[in-house]
């Protein structure tokens, strides 16, 4: 296995209706041209959910940082990202005694929610904090020997003005650049 060039970032992007997206589209556009970043538009590559395991595993091996970027759907990720996890993070590759291919890599969730920040609180209508809701992602990374970084979260995105969208996309770009360094 070739050792990854340090700071190489793989963005696994999952949005099933990108033609209606505002924020995620802007975010993706903002990072696409960065040197060292690979954007993987999962719904475009696998419209029928037929995820190619070996291709995805090779990509993982070649990168140092993995981003799970998606809109927050029903307190989780859109279905294809889950399918990606189910089939790509194989026993013997990602976990298990022999499964050390991902050890030492870093993972970050980058997601957007319709709900405002204060709703993600014991007192809010969503009743749980974001960190609590993201526990499955955190633990998935942990089991694969990866470090789960602080997630990049944008709340209440449907209320964003065009300027806010631009600003948010720029902050996302900055965060990715930090990871590339």
């Amino acid at each position: 296995m070739s050792s990854p060039a340090p700071g190489r970032v793989l963005i696994l992007f999952a949005h099933p209706a990108l033609h209606r997206s505002r924020i995620n589209l802007a975010m993706m556009d903002a990072v696409q041209d960065l040197e060292g970043v690979t954007v993987r538009d999962l719904y475009e590559v696998y419209p029928d959910f037929h995820v190619e395991v070996s291709t995805e595993q090779e990509l993982l091996v070649e990168h140092d940082v993995i981003i799970w970027q998606h809109p927050f759907y029903w307190y989780s990720a859109p279905a294809l990202l889950k399918e990606w996890m189910d089939v790509v993070l194989e026993y013997g590759f990602a976990y298990g005694d022999e499964g050390r291919a991902l050890h030492g890599k870093r993972v970050m969730s980058a997601l957007t929610t319709g709900g405002p920040e204060d709703a993600y609180d014991r007192a809010g209508y969503n009743r749980f904090s974001m960190r609590e809701l993201l526990a499955p992602f955190d633990q998935t990374a942990h089991l694969c020997g990866m470090k789960y970084l602080d997630p990049f979260i944008l709340h209440g995105v449907n209320q964003f003005s065009p300027e806010q969208v631009t600003a948010a996309a720029a902050s996302y770009r900055k965060r990715i650049q930090e990871l590339l360094a």
């Binding site: 209606r20 319709g114 709703a119």
Partner: peptide
């Protein structure tokens, strides 16, 4: 609307 209704999530409560 395939996967519509996203606006409702802005203030979705029980």
């Amino acid at each position: 609307q395939h996967l519509g209704g996203e606006d409702a999530w802005d203030s979705a409560g029980p």
